[in-house]
Amino acid sequence: MIIDSLEHASKYKFGPAWEKTFEFLAKVDPAIEEGKHIIDGDNVFALVSEYKTKDYDKGRFEAHRKYVDIQFLISGREKLGYASLQALEEETPYDSERDVEFLKDLPEVPSISTLIPGIFMAFFPQDGHMPGLAYDKPEPVKKIVIKIAINAL
């Protein structure tokens, strides 16, 4: 997992797909419409959504095998949980079509970090993450999740 500011993204040398991701984020119009936005075919695309954050007890850990998730807020505040896959156990088996499995946390306390505009979080296949958590109380957010194919890095 990586947590950093958008201005530092170029310090990570993961190749052209990574660079295209952060070029997109640096130029994104806050009025971008919800939905899927193609950046580089199936290798890099953005999913834009607006929703209300939720309390921790309503969250679910997830993990992906084919894509890295880059989470970036346009507006609002959100907390995200993080735990390595070894600290989680399967709740819903991996769905290869949707590239997601849902997990539940074991007694170890996961790490909780705050996401605000200008900061990104990158989650790799070994990273379980629980997005969409309320900062203090549920609030509306606008978010971009960029999917980078593992084989494009």
Rank of each mutant, 00 (worst) to 15 (best):
I2N: 11
D4L: 10
S5F: 12
L6W: 00
E7Y: 08
H8W: 12
A9W: 01
A9E: 07
S10C: 07
K11E: 14
Y12M: 10
Y12T: 07
F14E: 10
W18Y: 02
L25R: 02
A26Q: 13
A31G: 11
E33Q: 14
E34F: 02
E34H: 07
G35F: 02
G35K: 00
D40W: 03
D42S: 14
D42K: 15
N43Q: 11
F45E: 03
Y51A: 06
K52E: 15
T53A: 05
Y56F: 15
D57S: 14
D57Q: 13
R60H: 04
F61S: 03
F61W: 00
E62N: 04
R65W: 11
K66H: 08
K66P: 01
Y67L: 06
V68F: 13
I70L: 06
L73S: 09
L73H: 04
I74C: 11
A83P: 00
E89R: 10
T92E: 15
Y94R: 10
R98C: 04
D99N: 07
E101F: 11
L103H: 09
K104H: 10
K104N: 12
K104I: 11
K104M: 13
K104W: 08
K104L: 13
E108R: 07
E108W: 09
V109I: 15
V109P: 12
P110K: 03
I112Q: 01
I116P: 04
I119Y: 11
F123N: 04
Q126A: 12
D127Q: 05
G128K: 05
H129Q: 06
L133S: 00
P140N: 08
V141E: 01
K142Q: 05
K142L: 06
K143C: 02
I144V: 10
V145M: 02
A149H: 03
A149R: 08
N151V: 13
